[in-house]
Amino acid sequence: MTTKQMPRLSTEPRQRIGTRYARRLREGGRLPAVIYGHGQDNLALTVDAEQFMEILHTHAHLVEIDVAGKAEPCLIKDVQWDHLGSQVLHIDLTRVDLTEEVEVDVALALVGEPKALQQAGAVLDHPLTALTILCRADSIPEKITVDIENLELGKSITVADITLPAGVKAVTDQEQLVAQISVVEETVEEPVAAEGAAAEPEVIGKAAATEEEGEAPAEEKK
């Protein structure tokens, strides 16, 4: 993403810190945020919630922050969500030089329709949905595409197999599994046993305790 495409986010300084004031801000349509990094002082700010959500939906990593009339490029370092994952609670931004290398998580997009998937019970496993990469701040790719067109049954694609754009290095373990096609075997449904005394878990230390109990009375008598 170039500097021209960088979305701009206007901010206001946050005067009061704490749960109560942060809650009031959110009720008023603003979000608490903090900027840190580059050895400078941390800045507590507020941003417009609607404007930030629009930026977040574009999967942008870099934003131009307007602090007291001065534009500063920042990286969206962390976004805190509420327990339902529907509202943003707080944003962490870090100061960034556009020429420096940064570590960011970028979404992995699987492209292609492998023939092996047409087999009955075949399932595409892709445990890794984002890749941690190291690249220049001004050239963070929007997503990394992985071609799975020729993926066969029983074979897998790892991080090492991904062709990354120039200047991008993968930080994620090279042997990490990205995609694999496996066949889900039909499981035979076990009949549910009648609930009762038979269906009870083992109690830790109970067997040992009963053994000790057998010896203990003899000691007491002494």
């Binding site: 076990e190 549910v192 046993a193 269906a199 009870e200 878990p201 083992e202 109690v203 830790i204 230390g205």
Partner: peptide, 12 residues
């Protein structure tokens, strides 16, 4: 078998 722990420290 319904889901349940294999081993527990206390029964109740």
């Amino acid at each position: 078998m319904p889901l349940m722990p294999k081993r527990v420290k206390f029964r109740k």
